[in-house]
């Protein structure tokens, strides 16, 4: 496998929630056009770290981030950076499918509309269709685009949310346990999709399932109690972990 250049670099990132030290000194490089998985026991800080990459933590009052995170060499915590502009470049898919209470079409069109990606209705239609196709849900919903997105099944909702995130043409896609609320069939649909997505995007996925990380990712980082214990090729981590804690986790002794 070819090693892509680093898309995201972090250096000495620390996160505090009030008095809690949630992330301790994390440094890693995430390559472009790759799926990178964050694994670790619940409460280890992997989701928190993920939310730092598109500054979603800004919406929480008590959260404080220090250290450097760069995307394409630009510090995203620079004072000149507008988080709104950043989040267009760094899309996000959440743990629980959260379609807006609008039609399927409007759900996908929302992002392009606010970012002004379409000049007219025809262009918007095109963007929506493309996003739904990439989200591998077009065939299921093409005849009912005006129905509410909340009426879809769980797996469909999550793929709709992925399509929604893709529609703004991000370069990076963050996924926070995207399959934890889904049944096995829906999970496998979404996993296939994620595997496809790496051709166009850098995907960072947080998951509590090691099998999932093994199935979809090329790189894996293991988090434990707020620190990043180990980071490397997924095959390496699962077959030959260097750290004892990683081994314990993978063999099911902790977590």
């Amino acid at each position: 496998m070819t090693q892509n250049r680093a898309k995201i670099r972090t250096e000495g990132v620390n996160v505090h929630y009030g008095a809690t030290h949630a992330i301790k000194d994390v440094t890693l490089d995430i390559p472009d056009k790759t799926v990178t998985a964050f694994i670790g026991p619940s409460g280890c800080g992997k989701s928190t770290f993920l939310r730092c990459i598109n500054r979603m933590n800004d919406t929480i009052d008590v959260c404080r981030v220090t250290g450097i995170i760069t995307i394409d060499g630009e510090d995203i915590y620079d004072r000149r950076i507008d988080p709104v502009q950043l989040r267009r470049k760094v899309g996000m898919v959440f743990q629980k499918p959260n379609p807006f209470p609008k039609s399927i079409y409007d759900n996908v069109a929302y992002g392009p509309k606010i970012h002004g990606l379409a000049r007219n209705r025809a262009e918007l239609d095109e963007i929506v269709e493309k996003a739904l196709r990439r989200g591998a849900i077009w065939d299921e919903v093409k005849d009912r685009l005006s129905e509410p997105g909340t009426g879809l099944s769980g797996g469909q909702q999550q793929r709709l949310c992925i399509a929604r995130a893709i529609a703004t043409e991000p370069e990076i896609l963050l996924m926070d346990e995207p399959c934890s609320a889904l049944d096995p069939i829906a999970t496998s649909q979404v996993e296939e999709l994620i595997y496809e997505l790496k051709n166009n995007y850098s995907v960072v996925i947080v998951t509590h399932s090691m099998q999932q990380a093994a199935r979809v990712s090329q790189k894996t980082a293991f988090f434990h109690l707020g620190t990043m214990v180990e980071y490397g090729e997924t095959d390496e981590i699962f077959t030959n972990p260097r750290d004892e804690r990683t081994e314990n986790y993978i063999t099911g002794r902790i977590g």
Binding site: I71, E74, D78, R80, I81, D82, L86
Partner: peptide
């Protein structure tokens, strides 16, 4: 389609 800004450090007109 609008041009994709290469740098995040400059605010595009729309964001402003």
């Amino acid at each position: 389609m609008t041009e994709i800004t290469t740098s995040l450090l400059t605010l595009d007109a729309r964001t402003q």
